[in-house]
Design a protein around this nucleic acid. Structure first.
Length: 229
DNA sequence: TAGGCCATCTGGTCCT
DNA sequence: AGGACCAGATGGCCTA
């Protein structure tokens, strides 16, 4: 629907554009005429000129003016054609970009109300999601080496400190959250931003993790896993 | 009605 | 030279 209305607007723009009249520069014309014509020196016609010669001169002038206007029209048409082609390419490029964003949305955690993520939210969530998944893998590796009780040790808990890319995400992930137990919050702000943003979305941890088959021990341990920052 | 989001156009710049 | 990419401008749609 939006596309349709936009297309209408575009076509109407083109319509108005095509209705534009070509304006030729009269000054330039008179200048070129004066400098190039063997007969003309402005209005200083020779008194010896016959009426036939005068008519010939007038015809030549007319021809040149017509040819110049025609050339300008052709140039304008070429420019316009190039612009239209460039617009078309740009439109396609943006469509491709949007398709890629849609693909990205489709693999990101779904939301209960089927809210479509905006572009910026999609990118930020993807960023955070990748970060969270990589942390999960890292934790899974650590679990092989460390007993789980160590991971739950108070030394690991740091509820007040959200993770940042360089920080120890383990403490954050294993910490308790106000929205823990059965729900999670997905914050689409950047992981590098320390504070929780307001644009957060809520959903169920189980459905999210079942979609992405993350290690079960990770699911059980980190209820607030998807609390992205 | 203001603000957010989006699609499109456009001109400039860079790259091949 | 032509295409890709980018950022700014503009206008439409939607929602609080």
């Amino acid at each position: 629907m939006i596309m349709a209305s936009n297309m209408e607007r575009v076509s109407s723009d083109y319509d108005t554009c095509s209705q534009m009249s070509y304006s030729s520069s009269d000054d330039e014309d008179s200048f070129s005429m004066q400098s190039s014509s063997p007969f003309s020196s402005g209005h200083m016609t020779s008194p010896a000129q016959t009426p036939e010669k005068c008519q010939e001169e007038k015809d030549t002038r007319k021809k040149r003016v017509r040819s110049k206007v025609k050339n300008e029209a052709v140039l304008h048409t070429i420019k316009k054609t190039r612009r239209v082609k460039a617009n078309d390419r740009e439109r396609n490029r943006m469509h491709n970009l949007n398709s890629a964003l849609d693909e990205l949305r489709s693999i990101l955690p779904s939301f209960p109300d089927d809210t479509k993520l905006t572009k910026i939210e999609t990118l930020r969530l993807a960023h955070n999601y990748i970060w969270a998944l990589s942390e999960t893998l890292r934790l899974a590796d650590q679990c092989k080496e460390k007993p789980l009780k160590d991971l739950g040790h108070p030394a690991y808990l740091n509820p007040a400190t959200p993770p940042s890319p360089g920080s120890d995400a383990e403490s954050w992930m294993s910490s308790s959250s106000p929205s823990s137990s059965s729900s999670f919050s997905v914050c689409t702000s950047s992981p590098s931003s320390p504070a929780m943003s307001e644009d957060c979305y809520y959903g169920h941890t189980d459905s999210l993790f079942s979609l992405h088959t993350l290690p079960q021990n990770m699911i059980q341990r980190s209820h607030c896993f998807m609390q992205y920052h």
